[in-house]
Design a protein around this nucleic acid. Structure first.
Lengths: 189, 189, 189, 189
DNA sequence: TACTAATCGAGACGGTACGTCATGTCTTGGA
DNA sequence: TCCAAGACATGACGTACCGTCTCGATTAGTA
């Protein structure tokens, strides 16, 4: 497998190396220690190659989010028909991930990036609470349980759940299983 | 018997100038453009005077939060007895504030600071959702409405509301009056 | 005429601007008021460009000496065949230069730099008393006058003359014409 | 032994501690690493006590020179009647001292101080080459040897000898015994 | 005897400069 | 035309000292 060096067309190899390095460094060092020079060095790439295609750190992170390179839990929301049980399991898995390794650091890094960069904010919301994820699952569940009738404000329910998660990450109070139960009681009655 | 402490004493004037400059610059320029040198210059103070008493930008911001110098909405949560009406009004006022001036920039700056600095995170949660603010108001309202019985998970309800607000700030989707109604329907039934 | 900007090779334009600024500031402000930041500002250059190529103020001054940018009297030692007359004229010119303008400040600055930096010390001695300057002229004169026979310790004679000059600069007692005559009598009999 | 603490009269204890600390630090760390704060700390003294009585580092060093606290060789110039032998021995002792320990660092520190501070310059010259030291000894020897007749320029001879010594210290070329012989040949014929 | 006034150790203050790190722009030479 | 490499001007970092300024304690001389 040849390693492409340069030429008149954009190097996909360089692009992926940059995104991969960004995702790795973001999880390992945190957003405030993430530097363009560090990304370039880790990716084995010249700085100019980064600036040619992206305009800022946030821009790269936004693309990482699009490619699903930073949030591992994407799309794993189960669908057994029992919406409360599914949400319980999903939130517990998320909480476990945050409690382990660099999970919380990564989430806080994404929040910091979102706070500075528009597109990261939008995509972070979409990935975590958007129609292809949480709010879509909720929409499909409307009408199956008393507390989630047709026409329920699924977008806001999703935002409330994810927002509570973020707030817990910011205040460094990990969600315990009992907290998750109470949280679901709060938004699903 | 008091032990005599020799040497000059800390300048309260310098301390307040630094906190004030930090609060002002944070709202005006945002967290990522907030620099220690900028604070020192705006406060008319030497850098060393800052480093002598605080260890980082986050440390100063945390003290600003303690002193109530950055969050304008503190304590204004009304209490008319009608919890839903009170929350509606309070959230509308907050949303108005965010929509105006540098409100959203300030909130995103606080989120960025919280993402990097432990103490900012804790205090931001306390100021916005804590027992002396939102969750306390909710606790007092338990039992007065069907959807908020005694023993309701008020902490989680508060976190869900505030979390949704933060997520909207991050995704730059200002809360409209209709959104607020739906959000309250989501958490209060 | 194009002004060279930057690139992957060292900028000769920046190098010369730095040396020139150093020589100028050294003569104008003195060694103790010479700062890297001042040099950078006067040369229109970033500090890092200085630190990339030199390790200290002394290092830059040593290079200035190599390029002949600080000691104006270099190589002007006359050679009429009459060594005593030549030395008298040369020393008088030097003394005049020191008495004028910033001459003495410059010499004291070079001494201060030499006292701290090895290479400046060596090069200062070479420029003032070395074989390509004073001691060389003396060597060529051996055998032409009774008091300077072949095998005379020309190196030490040169060092004694220049050393006396430095000591006078340090004690702020400018060499008068009569002093020069006595000094030459001391070392040439 | 009572340690005097404070009162309305100047503390001789503090004065001597400051001079001693200055002399010690000058020999140990060199002039450029000598700081007022370092002196105060080493002397166990407040900064203001230094600034109350001296105006600068050079001022303290000048007083150290007056008190004979830095130049150990003072007054040891022997007088056996044989001026050349006496000078040879004296210069060899000086050269030995410079070669040992921090001797050269101390001399270069004094030169650096002299280059910046008028009074240090004057006193350094007096201590090393002045009438109470070298030039006085030379004056008394006039008429005893053919090469040092009455009326010989003893001041200039002394300056030439000491100047050569300083220049060697600056160029880090220690005087060897053979160098000393040649130097004496240069100035005494 | 008490008071006054100068001095002491200590150290906070507004600053300047340090040497380092990262920014975003530019240029080189190779593919 | 793109790439890796890296020099450039800029600007912020956190540290070390500068010289000035209190602070409370100490103590010699005056009241």
């Amino acid at each position: 497998m040849a390693l492409p060096r340069s030429g008149p067309v954009r190097s996909e190899h360089a692009r992926r190396a940059i995104l991969q390095a960004t995702a790795t460094l973001l999880a390992e060092r945190g957003y405030d220690h993430l530097t363009i020079e560090g990304i370039a060095a880790a990716a084995g790439v010249g700085k100019q190659t980064i600036y040619r295609w992206w305009s800022s750190k946030g821009d790269i992170i936004a693309e990482c989010l699009l490619e699903g390179m930073v949030v591992p839990g994407r799309g794993e929301l189960p669908d057994t028909g029992d919406i409360r049980a599914d949400l319980t399991r999903w939130l517990r898995d998320l909480a476990d991930m945050l409690a382990r390794d660099e999970g919380e650091l990564l989430l806080r890094s994404l929040i910091a990036a979102a706070a500075e960069h528009v597109e990261v904010g939008r995509r972070l919301r979409d990935v975590l609470a958007g129609p292809e994820s949480l709010s879509g699952r909720l929409e499909r569940a409307t009408g199956t349980v008393p507390n989630l009738p047709r026409g329920a404000p699924v977008e806001e329910i999703a935002e409330a759940l994810i927002g509570a998660l973020l707030l817990r990450a910011l205040s460094r109070s990990p969600l315990q299983p009992a907290d998750i139960d109470r949280l679901l009681r709060a938004v699903l009655g």
